[in-house]
Structure formats: structure tokens, C-alpha cells
């Protein structure tokens, strides 16, 4: 009983408190860098697409709003198309969690309203940025042992040169 009255009183006192909300869009709230807003695809330090079309973001997506098709050139995998239907996206960030190459990232931009839903379907051209995003130094292909132009077998991080299988030496 007293608790209820106290609650009423304390709530009543909130009349004099400062408001925690701001009047968007006149006042824009400061967003932390890890804010989960619009999704982008980043490039590695060499300027190549980071996305290797592994499909893990698509499978991690709880609303199934990511679709892509793998293509390949000289050992590098890349998405032939990469489509995010933002009218379905819930900005949960699972795709970013799942991405093994830091390619897909959520950025602090949330102002993407449209009058037409088809305009919320973003293709690779709309998603791909020219920078590295949050992880400026990471390059998947420098770590993984696949051969790509400019990096032969045995030239990835912590790799020994290829074995000569014709030798009998131990």
C-alpha cells in the first residue's frame, strides 16, 4: 500500500526531471561507432572486396533478408550479386557476427526511410563502400591458405613454402 503511494509520488516527482529523449530531427543523438544501423560491405586494405560469398551472413540472418550468389575469379571468391532487403532487416547484427572476413558491417546510419518498399532492396553496388570500415588491417586472403593472384601457395601468414613431393628427403 505504502509502496504504491510511494511509486505514485516518485512518478509525480519526475515532472521536474530532464527529458531523456531528444527532439529528432532537430537534435541528432550522438551514436556510438558500434551502433547497429545500415549495413555495408567493406573492402580489404588492398582495395579488393572483402566479401568471399561464404553465405554465413545469409544463414545467420533470422529474417532471411540477405541473399547472394558465389562467383570465383583466380581463386578469389566474391559475390556475383549481394542483396539485402532492408524492409525485412531487423538490424540485429547477426550477419556481422557471422562474417568471417569482417566484410559485412553495421554502421551508425539509420536514416534510410523510403516511400516505396522496393527502394529498400539494396544491391551490391549500394552496399559496397570503398574503405575498410571498422577493421582497417584485416585481410582474409593474407591469412587463409588459398592461392590468389599475387599470393602463391605458402605465402599466407605462417605458411611454409610448398612441399616438393618428388623429394625423398625427410
Amino acid at each position: 500500500m505504502f509502496g504504491i503511494l510511494r511509486t505514485l509520488w516518485l512518478t509525480f516527482l519526475h515532472m521536474g526531471h530532464r527529458r531523456v529523449t531528444v527532439g529528432y530531427p532537430e537534435h541528432k543523438p550522438p551514436l556510438p561507432p558500434r551502433y547497429r544501423g545500415r549495413i555495408i560491405l567493406s573492402r580489404d586494405p588492398d582495395g579488393m572486396e572483402r566479401c568471399v560469398a561464404c553465405n554465413l551472413c545469409a544463414v545467420a540472418c533470422p529474417v532471411d533478408c540477405i541473399s547472394l550468389q558465389k562467383a570465383e575469379q583466380d581463386g578469389r571468391w566474391y559475390p556475383d550479386y549481394f542483396r539485402i532487403n532492408f524492409s525485412r532487416c531487423i538490424f540485429c547484427g547477426m550477419c556481422e557476427e557471422a562474417c568471417p572476413t569482417y566484410a559485412i558491417q553495421l554502421i551508425p546510419d539509420f536514416e534510410m526511410s523510403e516511400y516505396l518498399r522496393p527502394n529498400l532492396v539494396y544491391e551490391k553496388e549500394d552496399l559496397l563502400i570503398s574503405g575498410t570500415g571498422k577493421y582497417p588491417d584485416y585481410s582474409f586472403f593474407r591469412v587463409a591458405g588459398v592461392k590468389i593472384p599475387g599470393k602463391d601457395k605458402g605465402e599466407a601468414e605462417r605458411e611454409a613454402p610448398p612441399v616438393d613431393i618428388h623429394t625423398l628427403l625427410p
Partner: peptide, 11 residues
């Protein structure tokens, strides 16, 4: 309600 809950309400 907005006033008591530290927000604006319809403004």
C-alpha cells in the same frame, strides 16, 4: 505520461 516518464509525448 510523457512528462512523468521523462519524454515528450505528442508535440
Amino acid at each position: 505520461l510523457g512528462l512523468w516518464q521523462d519524454r515528450y509525448g505528442p508535440n
